[in-house]
Design a protein around this nucleic acid. Structure first.
Lengths: 333, 333
DNA sequence: GCTCTGCTGTGAATCGTTTCAAAATCTACG
DNA sequence: CGTAGATTTTGAAACGATTCACAGCAGAGC
């Protein structure tokens, strides 16, 4: 049933070593022999067994990416960038979804450790990186994605979330708003906390400006709608005139709730709305939503770079990208 | 560096066979020995090498899912269902994206064949299934997802796309529309062609009803907007009063173009719009979009079932689900 | 004719796990 | 105390590819 190098070698009338050479170092093999071996491979329908190869080589030709939420277009963009870069070096990228759950994250990391993948890109769920330390201890390079590594000795690729939050808040202030709402959560998600902090610091610098936090349990369309409904009366009262959403899914949900209220809110006249991530749906919303853009594909490809350069004794590197703001109709008339 | 069963066995003072038994058949091992071995494992931080295990077992404990488009929420839902079902049997699911490209599909299938995965779930790009035949020839079970297998000897899980197309068209006709537009493409994508055919057959049964096809190159928000803009004058003229979109991304793009035209189209008064897939964004659109729903998670879990039951000489099974229609404000006042 | 060099090809050792027949140890009972 | 039977444990073989020291060989140079 299973066709191995042995059968191929037998049919081609060469040794197994030669078959392996044809596959991996054809320049050391006479063209005529290559042809014979190729023919045998084709005839038998031989497919190399990567388990065997990997066992011998001690490491697989693949990388793994563990993201917080595959349903979030931001992460699929990151994955796309990473996969493209990995493919350049002939590496496969495995994608896994932790769904913001520590358990699932741990499960996936276990599997990847057992696979002896060549490296792991991960946007960690919590603050506890000890499991990742262990992986590195086992010789598997780790790069944090969308999370600054700080003093821990990991490489990381992130976007300055504080700057992003600040960007959003400043834009609202500069377009005349004074009473901002920040929608997002849970705050244990580092990115959310940072974005909130960035917004806070800008607002704190303006004596007459205020910022109020509206927490959510998830960053989904539905949570956005829920909060949006609660915001309507506040906007009508003038107690809120600008909204910073921690991601675009929330922003879209909020927008829908506002525009669909019994007494609809006008946008951008009554309230300004800024989202985060600049996913495709943000530009396609009824009132296109201004959004803080992150270079998602670049984040992915850079993370793979960092994995590849991580060797013995190479100092970890922290790459931090700056976000920028895409201004659309949800904030300016 | 690498910790193997051998080191664990040495530390625990047992043989390698016993360590393996502790890991795989603890019921055959004395509790006291189990504890000793466990301690050794913990102390050394031993992680089993799955390449070695797989080499020995001849098959890996994982399945693979190759989808047409990871960015489409429908497929991430399918993946979620499949992954959950696989996890019940302790199997890992690898997710790969063919992006509607035959080459990428082939590339992924190659890698999975080399990995000797326990089975492949695939929503095939083209009509040529010969590569999949080969995989099955190598003893890897294959299940087609979202595509009926027809007379080919594969198992498959699909949704009756003709019925879905019919459902959408019938609903528009029953709510008084007479001149329908079908938006989608390219038609070489089987699902699209079937949905169109379903809609056609219903329209053909009504003497005074018409159906016009508006082709697209992709099924994206942007293509939807493009077509939507072209539709505006036709709707104003009364030449189109109902639209069937081949998926929700298109539908959302279309809606945006219609509502945002210089002379906005009213929905559902001037035109009815039905999408396909019932993704979360459809319900959250400005005017919530009626949509043909497919049991996506169920499709995924069923596909895994079929893989698991596929043994030697088990006849392939075709499971076909019926879609249903979720009616929202885009079609009824 | 002989050695040296460079090119091809060989095949045994190796990677880490599981398996399984056989050995060792224990248990119960007459 | 001896032994049949059950329970545990052992250790070598096997999985399929890569590697690498070495062998064979042809042609060059002397």
């Amino acid at each position: 049933m299973a066709v191995s190098v042995k059968e191929v070698a037998a049919l081609a009338g060469v040794s197994v070593g030669t078959v392996s050479n044809v596959l991996n170092r054809p320049e050391h093999v006479k063209p005529d022999t290559i042809r014979r071996v190729q023919d045998a491979i084709d005839e038998l329908g031989y497919v190399p067994n990567s388990a065997a190869r990997q066992l011998r080589e001690g490491r697989s030709r693949s990388l793994a990416l563990v993201v917080l939420d595959v349903a979030n277009p931001f992460f699929t963009d990151v994955a796309r960038g990473a996969e493209a870069r990995a493919a350049e070096d002939g590496l496969t990228l495995f994608l896994a979804n932790s769904d913001d759950s520590t358990d699932r994250e741990a499960l996936h990391l276990d599997v990847f450790a057992q696979q002896r993948v060549g490296g792991v890109l991960v946007s960690p769920v919590g603050e506890d990186l000890s499991r990742l330390e262990t992986m590195r201890g086992h010789g598997i390079p780790v790069v944090l994605v969308d999370r600054e590594a700080g003093e821990s000795a990991f490489s990381s690729v992130s976007v300055d979330d504080k700057a992003g939050g600040a960007l959003a808040a400043r834009h609202l202030l500069e377009t005349g708003r004074r009473h901002l709402a920040f929608v997002g959560g849970p705050l244990r998600i580092r990115q959310v906390a940072d974005r909130f902090e960035g917004a806070s610091s800008v607002v704190a610098g303006e004596p007459d400006a205020t910022l109020r936090l509206f927490g959510t349990d998830e960053m989904t369309l539905n949570e956005g709608r829920r909060v949006g409904e609660a915001l309507v009366p506040l906007i009508k009262d003038g107690r809120v005139d600008g909204i910073v959403a921690a991601n675009d899914l929330l922003a879209i949900g909020i927008q829908r709730a506002l525009l669909f209220a019994d007494e609809p809110v006008r946008m951008p006249e009554d309230v300004g709305l800024v989202g985060y991530d600049d996913i495709a749906f943000a530009a396609s919303a009824v009132v296109p939503i201004s959004s803080v853009r992150q270079p998602s594909a670049l984040i992915g490809s850079t993370a793979v770079e960092l994995i590849l350069e991580a060797g013995d004794g190479v100092a970890p590197r922290q790459v931090v990208f700056e976000p920028d703001l895409v201004v659309r109709a949800s904030t300016v008339g």
